[in-house]
């Protein structure tokens, strides 16, 4: 009984559900504010993303007559539900152990593409040519950025695992780091870290990799036909996705808590996520333009994936 209660609490309040939504909107607010400062502007108030969500909920929902109505409505709802579940599974060093057991890294590998999948379903269900373009771009870029992600997972697992076996469990990787210091300061893992830093803007579609949603080109692609609460669901989804991706990289490379106090650890965790976001999302999107689809593909296949593979190789040899 207490297990069920605990799981419900984790899914609905902390660390999934409400806490993940709040953290995501907070990070988005900081992102917009800092981006404005980098462009010598004042920027919106910190609660602007939450105000946007509230505003969208009061708007009318329009559904194109040619769209597949069920898929059109279900895509954002399922996407949001998927990321909220994933957020409950993410471990927070010293606060929450997340999903435990063997192979939770594989589970995450299956859960991470859910937002991208929701995007694709939305793009194809909206029956708009721009949505279809966004759909095909999202799919192509997803194939590209999954490669360095898997290679980096394997590298971390190989580094943390015992002789002859890679640990496909976040908990094992985190325990290894508690014992031997964070992987961030491990020279063998630096290429994998670089690969993950390229992966974050790729999966969040910002800066160089703003390819599926490119506003001037395909007018926000799959989101073009969405309005009102459904668009709000997509915005929330992308905010929580940001949280998940940042928490994943923090867990893989620097999960070490600051002390034994839960509050301090939580603040420390948020601070790490914030710094990671400022570097990989905010500064990146302010200072770079957009690549073409095949150029973006090349970045992942030619640079990010080999970097992660180098780490994997080194970690396997230097065990």
């Amino acid at each position: 009984m207490s297990n069920i209660l605990e799981a419900t609490f984790a899914l609905l309040i902390f660390p999934g559900g409400a806490a993940a939504l709040a953290l995501g909107l907070f990070l988005k607010g900081i992102d917009r504010r800092v981006a404005a400062r980098l462009q010598r502007r004042v920027g919106p108030p910190l609660i602007q993303p939450a105000l946007d969500i509230l505003k969208l909920c009061t708007k009318e929902t329009l559904i194109p007559t040619t769209a597949n109505e069920a898929a059109f409505i279900l895509a954002p709802v399922l996407g949001l539900a998927g990321v909220l579940v994933t957020a409950a599974l993410m471990p927070i060093g010293g606060v929450w152990s997340g999903v435990t057991g063997l192979g939770d890294l594989l589970l995450l590998l299956y859960l991470l593409p859910i937002p991208a999948m929701a995007f694709m379903v939305a793009g194809s269900a909206s029956s708009s040519p721009y949505g279809a373009l966004g759909f095909s771009r999202e799919m192509a870029i997803m194939f590209a950025y999954e490669m360095p992600l898997i290679a980096a997972f394997l590298a971390c697992g190989a580094r943390a695992g015992g002789v002859g076996e890679a640990a496909m469990s976040l908990q094992t990787i985190m325990n290894y780091q508690y014992a031997n210091g964070p992987l961030l300061f491990d020279p063998v893992m630096l290429p994998a870290l670089a690969a993950m830093i390229i992966f974050i803007p790729g999966t969040m579609s910002v800066g160089l990799f703003d390819i599926p949603e490119a506003e001037p080109e395909v007018i926000e692609g799959p989101l073009l036909e969405y309005s009102g609460p459904l668009l709000a669901a997509f915005n929330l989804m992308s905010a929580v996705k940001l949280v998940i991706v940042l928490e994943l990289v923090v867990a893989l490379f620097w999960p070490n808590p600051l002390g034994s106090s839960v509050i301090v650890n939580l603040i420390w965790h948020v601070a790490k996520c914030l710094i990671l976001m400022l570097v990989t999302v905010t500064c990146f999107r302010v200072s770079t333009g957009r690549l073409r689809l095949e150029q973006g593909f090349t970045v992942f296949v030619k640079y990010a994936a080999p970097l992660a593979l180098v780490s994997l190789g080194l970690a396997s040899i230097l065990r």
Binding site: G43, P45, K59, L231
Partner: peptide, 21 residues
Amino acid sequence: IPRYDVERLGCKYCGSPRHAD
């Protein structure tokens, strides 16, 4: 341009008419 910065009022220019207020 930063001189007028309408984002202070929460404004965002959107490409799709479906998002507009």
